[in-house]
Design a protein around this nucleic acid. Structure first.
Length: 142
RNA sequence: GCUACCGGCCCAGCCAUCGAUCCCCUUUGGGGGUAGGAAAGUCCGGACAGCGCAGGGCAAUGCACCGGCGAAUAACCGGGUGGUGCGAAAGCACCAACAGAUAGUGCCACAGAAAAUUACUUUCCUGUUUCGGCGGGAUAAAGGUGAAAACGUGGGGUAAGAGCCCACGGUUUGGUUCAGUAAUGGCCCAGACGGGUAAACCUUGCAUGUUGUAAUGCCACGUAAACUAACGUCUGAGGGCGGCUCGCCCGAGUUAGAGGGUAGGCAGCUAGAGGUGCUGAGUAAUCAGCAUCCCAGGUAAAUGAUGGCAUCCCCUGAAAACGGGGACUACAGAAUCCGGCUUAUGCGCCGGUAGCUUUU
RNA sequence: UGCCUGAUAGUAUAAUGGUAGUACGACAGUUUUUGGUACUGUUUGUCUUGGUUCGAAUCCAGGUCGGGCAA
């Protein structure tokens, strides 16, 4: 479903620190994407969702809290509507993922632009999954 | 009518779909709530919480006309006084850190004789003289300088002068009386007029414990009651009593380093100096009574997205309708909560001022 | 969120309330065939708005921007 509850969001400080320290990253303007992928990413085993998602904007480019809030809301909304293919791919491979979207542009974006770019990023994440653990025996290949 | 400025009021409105979060009913659905006037700056004041709470002295910080209001404030309201601007005046607007300069210390550049008990030129008296002056004394009127020059004007007086004396006027202190709760103001009387600066040090009076919800309490998890160095165990290290000191108390560990562990949750956390409406008291801040309502509670941090409607503007048009395009807003996003202040602000409405135009 | 602290030429850094300096840089000139070096001169200013004062970089208040501390 098109939900985005508390359990689907990236909330642990520890996990975020790990994400920025050892996670992989790539850039698709206007975002830089950090992600960590594996069989047991989360400590809590009881989650039903395979992805923890976070979004951020730096204070350096946007001084006003109103602008930062708007960018984060647009990012969340776009992710919420397009995340299902990623969920499906991860469930098939029995993997978990933590992902963080960092906004790097300097100007306030429009919703259409954000929606399109998030779609591109999610497609790329799905595409990178098989290469991320090629020699893994337990991953069922579809 | 338009434009500009000032002040006040009001504002992400309604519907549908898809979400986020909190609460309730119930159960896997339904209902309800969900950003501001400044949520901002953090400039003040409180509430609340931890620590501290034998005391003395010194220091530090803040405040300083009067009355009111309130939980509290130098900051709110009203009044007085002073200053600035406009104005012929009446008055209006804005600002004020409006105790003390005769308690003391300091400073007042340049200019000027002199920047606070001062004397250069001048004026007057007198001694001397080589007649150019020189010495002693009196005076503070005139001169120019400066931001500021020893109350102002006129007269008397004098060797020449001077508040030295007098009249009028100014500032200021005290007293009587009148008005006012008071600050203060008016009349009268008496005295003084030896500059300015206290947003220079300071003096006087009053007040002030300190740290802040990342406070604080609890639960869970985890290493390490570990290692190294210094000081110390009554010959007492160190700590507490706001900063220092005296004094008092506690007292067996304290401090530093390297290297590790944790950084998850609950309470605090939203029913309150609460909101709205009406009535009454008051110039106002504010207060009282009645009725009614429950109105964000997030934590890498919710309060959103899309479409339509409503509203406004532009084009087409004589006008309306239809159609097309645009705006759909400015300033701005809660983080413990309140009161005040400051700053940022668009459209619309209301009021005021100024200018232009049209009609009567 | 709470609490501290600062702003001076392009850069670094001085200045008791009394003419805003110093060094490097930039520009111009002299010397040189030219450039460098050297010498001479010039330029660029107190973050902003008010107040106190005869007079503020300095004292005081509001604003803007920056830096730091506390888990």
């Amino acid at each position: 479903m098109f939900t985005l509850g508390k359990q689907e969001r990236l909330k642990s400080r520890k996990l975020i620190d790990r994400l920025f320290r050892e996670g992989k990253n790539f850039s698709v303007f206007p975002y830089r994407v950090y992600y960590v992928c594996g069989e047991q990413v989360f400590k809590d085993p009881g989650t039903d969702f395979p992805v923890a998602f976070g979004v951020g904007v730096g204070t350096r480019h946007f001084k006003k809290a109103v602008d930062r809030n708007r960018i984060k809301r647009l990012g969340r909304e776009s992710y919420r509507l397009q995340k299902l293919p990623l969920y499906e791919a991860l469930r098939q491979r029995n993997l978990q993922m933590a992902v963080f979207f960092l906004f790097t542009a300097r100007e306030l974006p429009a919703y259409g632009q954000i929606y399109e770019k998030i779609g591109v990023i999610l497609e790329r994440l799905v595409r990178e999954l098989p290469q991320s653990n090629p020699g893994h025996t337990t991953s069922p290949v579809s």
